[in-house]
Design a protein around this nucleic acid. Structure first.
Lengths: 219, 219
DNA sequence: GTGCCACTTTACACTTGGTGACATCCTAGG
DNA sequence: CCTAGGATGTCACCAAGTGTAAAGTGGCAC
């Protein structure tokens, strides 16, 4: 009953999966631009129109995972533990995502290779990056009712730097074919920055020391 | 003779300028996506094909200035003065560009407004940003024959942070309709970071203290 | 099983960005 | 004035999307 009831759903999932598989295979073989939506559809035994009903655009196929992943990142960022400074959740969230990346290594790498090979896609990727960065900035500013422009700038700067570190780690990982330990790389980069943050940005300026009344045993 | 010789050139420049004008006007009035290449061409009294001979794509119209501007930025970055630390050229270059932006305020703002209003274009912009960031990273690493991965990461982190500061300043400037002093904003953000760089990243770790034998009177 | 409803898929036409090929026009220069 | 070569226009074409109406198919009541 329950299994039968989902026949329609299962078929849709199947089609979706077939389309993704076919697309990735074709992208890998011929490149992204050289592969037409019609080809992907044909390879999946479906009409071109149906392809576009499953994915709003050819590009979106590559970035469809990104939304839920970003949401997961945001969840990690929201977790607060006793004794946390402003930066700790950021650090944990990044490491958690690095871990996730390593778990899906092959899929992630295949995706990244296709994206890096196409200028159009690289642009999309940058835009996504910005959203991740924003999530970090928002976290750093959480606890302020209405942060000052200065605090905002500072948060942006930190978020940007953090993401720079992440990007560097990711680039290295990609270059090494995913052999390196991404978590270690990320931790290294973040540690480098955490020290800076601790020494300068936070202590000498209370603007970015949030959650003063929310955390359990702060100071 | 010489003036006549340029007749062709002048005509081309004229057409080019007309196309840009018409395009900006239409983008402002109807938005970027809603404006077709054919409309721009018609409004400029040329054929659609000619439009695409002047600009490789509709997008490119908005970003055509970016290449020379980036090149100018790189030039600024290359300037070294006695007593400079690694960060000084970056600081000068950013301020110089902020100054340039303020000089062309209206053009820049119009462009930014159109870009911000269109998701597709925002992506392009991000990609451009990355190139600027790379330029900064390259500057920070200049003087190393073959920088260590660690130094590379650090340079990337700094470059990313710097650009984060720049982006924050720019966003504020845009939000205020270009009223604020962009140079001051940039200087403020960079100063914030320069202090950090000086205190932590550079002094405690010689990896990012470049040009040891190239500069004139370095220590 | 039959029939009906809702949802999916298809076929087809249309718009737009972008490109190649070729004819036409115009100016630089003799 | 005449002509070679660059600029422009015309036309045909491809691929990404999108709207729409018709055909197909699962879900379900009888």
């Amino acid at each position: 009953m329950l299994t039968k009831m989902a026949l329609r759903e299962r078929k849709k999932d199947q089609t979706r999966e077939t389309l993704i598989q076919a697309a990735f295979e074709l992208f890998r073989a011929k490149g992204f631009e050289a592969t037409t939506a019609a080809e992907i559809a044909a390879a999946s035994g479906v009409s071109r129109r149906t392809f576009f009903r499953y994915f709003p655009s050819k590009d979106e196929l590559l970035f469809i995972d990104n939304e839920p992943r970003l949401e997961r990142f945001r969840e990690h960022l929201r977790v607060r533990e006793p004794g946390d400074d402003a930066f700790a959740p950021v650090q944990r969230a990044c490491v958690a995502m690095a871990d996730e990346f390593m778990g899906e290594r092959d899929k992630i790498l295949a995706r990244l290779l296709i994206i890096e090979a196409s200028p159009v896609l690289a642009k999309q990727e940058r835009q996504q990056d910005l959203e991740w960065e924003d999530a970090i900035a928002v976290t750093l500013l959480s606890g302020f009712a209405s942060p000052s422009p200065r605090a905002r700038r500072k948060a942006r700067l930190i978020a940007s730097a953090v993401f720079g570190a992440i990007r560097a780690a990711l680039a290295e990982w990609l270059q090494g074919g995913g052999e390196a330990n991404l978590v270690e790389r990320a931790e290294e980069g973040l540690a480098l920055f955490a020290r800076v943050l601790d020494t300068e940005l936070r202590d000498t300026d209370p603007e970015l020391d949030p959650v003063p009344d929310d955390a359990s045993s702060h100071s």
